[in-house]
Every structure is written in C-alpha cells, then in structure tokens.
C-alpha cells in the first residue's frame, strides 16, 4: 500500500502581484481583488492579495534599485544596516515580517506570485522543491483543470541557479508565469489564463481543506539545466540575437546543431550541447541585463504521494 501524507489544513494564502512592477497582469488582478475580494474568498481560509513592489508599480518598471525577486536570502532579510539598504531589500524585510518569517512555523502556508514574461511560455507554474508533494498535487490539479490548454511546470531547483524568490518565504511557494506579454501591457488573453490558474489553485486548497484525498500522481516538469548567454563584443553589446527558428519555441526540443543565434553580420550560431534540451524564457526582455538569452531544461517526471488534510471540517 502506498504511503499517504497527512498535512495540516491551509489557513493563510497570499497572492502577490507587482513583484516586478511592469508585469501588469498580476498588478491588475491584485488591485482588482483588493477591492473585490469575493472572487478569491474561500471558506475558512485567509486569502490576502498584496502588491509587493508598489514603488516599481508606480513607475511601471521591473524594480527601483534591485530585483525584488532575488533578495529573499537570509543575509538580506537579516541585514540591519537601515541607512544603506536598497528600496527592494527594505521592502523584502517588510514583506517577510508580514508573510514570514521565512522558514518559520509562522510563515504563510501558500504564496502565489504572479508574473509575466515576453517569452512564448503560455501558462507556466514554477516549482521550487521537487519534494513538495502538496504543491505537486496542486499543480497536477491545475494542469488537469486547465486542459486542453497547455500548462507547463518549471522546476527551478538547481544548486547554482536557484534564486531567493519573494514567494520563498511561504511554506509552499508558487510562481505563476504567463506569456507572451510585453512589459507595460495588459493583454486580455494573458489576463484570463492567469485568473483561471488562481481560481483552480484556490479551489484545490478548498477541496484539500474539506478533506478530499488526492491520490498519488505523477507530474511532468521541466527542470532547469543552465542559462545560455548572448554573444557580446568588447563593449558588452550583443552581437547576435535569438534565431528566428528558436524564437517563440519555448518548451520545444532543441537539438545539437539547431540554430540558436543570428549574428548581426548574418551568420547562424548553432546549439552545441551534447543532448536534446527544452529551452524556456527565450528572449525574455528582463534577462538581457542578466545576460540570459534563454534557459535550458530537461524533461522529467515527479511522483507525489497521496495527500489529505488532518482534520476535515
């Protein structure tokens, strides 16, 4: 007989928008829910919508001083040098004081953090921990509910490339990434996908708290392998851009020898890895400054045990 994990009911859920101030779907939805909370209300659960980077939202930029979605590490969260802290580090400490503290029993159970990308990634869920059965079960539920619309799962567990996200203060951190959408633009189709993901996520939590048992499941995920940089000249300018054959081909296989970049003098640069990979975040606007042309992933399958709640209401 398979094992079953018995977990405490979910009591507190936060929905973050505006972690990047120019990713407008989350900003728009969270601002809407701050005024009209009935859509996200579920019995017995505190669901709190929250704008995480109001300074960046106001200016419609990704961040003011530094990327908020990279500073939730223990060093920044503990830093008490108040005079010299960047706007985002101060903000991170504030957010941690409300929804954390990160890693403690007092932290929120679930944080859904809403993002957009300029890449052709469709509806994407970001998983931080391959052992988090609760979140794997939730993603499986969302994927099934979104079908026939594709909903991909990106696993960012990586010894070197994993970063300290805003949502990481929760016991179950969930990234929601929907694209393609330009920065500073609201598209109805993207908004609709994001809204449906949140509905299904909250419904899942509601069923779970009600005592529904979720049977063991398997989930196909794309696990981060590496980031690929742009070719640059001595001035630091890009000398090549994403090749037309790769543009908009997120989650599709890239084989050794396939075109990857087009140089400005007209040459094709091929992918030279030694195995098939699945690229994602292809030509994401915000990653030029991070020098990431795209991220390579490998496909794998995660298994989650059955889960149910301790004390059905």
């Amino acid at each position: 007989m398979t094992a079953r994990r018995v977990l405490n009911p979910v009591q507190r859920v936060a929905i973050f928008g505006g972690t990047h101030g120019n990713e407008l779907s989350g900003v728009f939805l969270v601002n809407h829910w701050l005024k009209h909370g009935e859509e996200i209300a579920r019995p017995g659960i505190e669901v709190r919508p929250f704008i995480t980077n109001p300074g960046a939202v106001e200016k419609c930029v990704r961040y003011v001083d530094t990327d908020l979605n990279r500073v939730f590490d223990s060093e920044n969260l503990r830093n008490e040098n108040n005079l010299n802290l960047s706007y985002e580090v101060k903000r991170a400490q504030y957010i941690n004081s409300i929804f954390g503290p990160k890693g403690s029993e007092d932290a929120y159970d679930v944080i859904l953090d809403l993002h957009n990308t300029t890449s052709h990634m469709g509806a994407t869920l970001i998983l931080e921990d391959s052992k988090d059965d609760f979140t794997i079960q939730m993603f499986n539920y969302i994927k099934t509910s979104m079908a026939p619309l594709a909903c991909s799962v990106l696993l960012i567990e990586h010894p070197r490339l994993k970063y300290a996200t805003t949502r990481s203060i929760a016991k179950h951190p969930i990234g929601v990434e929907v694209g393609p959408q330009p920065q500073g633009v609201l598209r109805a189709d993207v908004l609709d996908k994001m809204r449906r993901i949140i509905k299904h996520a909250l419904d899942f939590i509601n069923y779970f708290n009600d005592g529904k048992e979720f049977l063991p499941c398997i989930l196909e995920v794309f696990k981060v392998l590496d980031n690929v940089a742009y070719p640059r000249n001595a001035n630091g300018d890009c000398t090549a851009i994403i090749h037309n054959n790769l543009q908009d081909q997120d989650w599709k296989e890239l084989k050794p020898g396939d075109p990857m970049f087009l140089t400005l003098d007209g040459r094709m640069i091929a992918y030279e890895g030694d195995c098939i990979v699945y690229p994602t975040f292809i030509n994401e606007a915000a990653y030029y400054e991070k020098n990431q042309a795209f991220t390579t992933t490998q496909k794998m399958t995660l298994c989650a045990q059955a889960i149910r709640c301790t004390e059905p209401k």
């Binding site: 300029t118 393609p180 994403i242 037309n244 606007a285 915000a286």
Partner: peptide, 14 residues
Amino acid sequence: GPQPQGVARADVLT
C-alpha cells in the same frame, strides 16, 4: 511591430 520593449526579435530586425 509587434515587438515588446527591450526585446530584439530576429523577424522584426531582419
């Protein structure tokens, strides 16, 4: 267009 701000697409550039 269409092209997002801060993005260089090969089709648009070409």
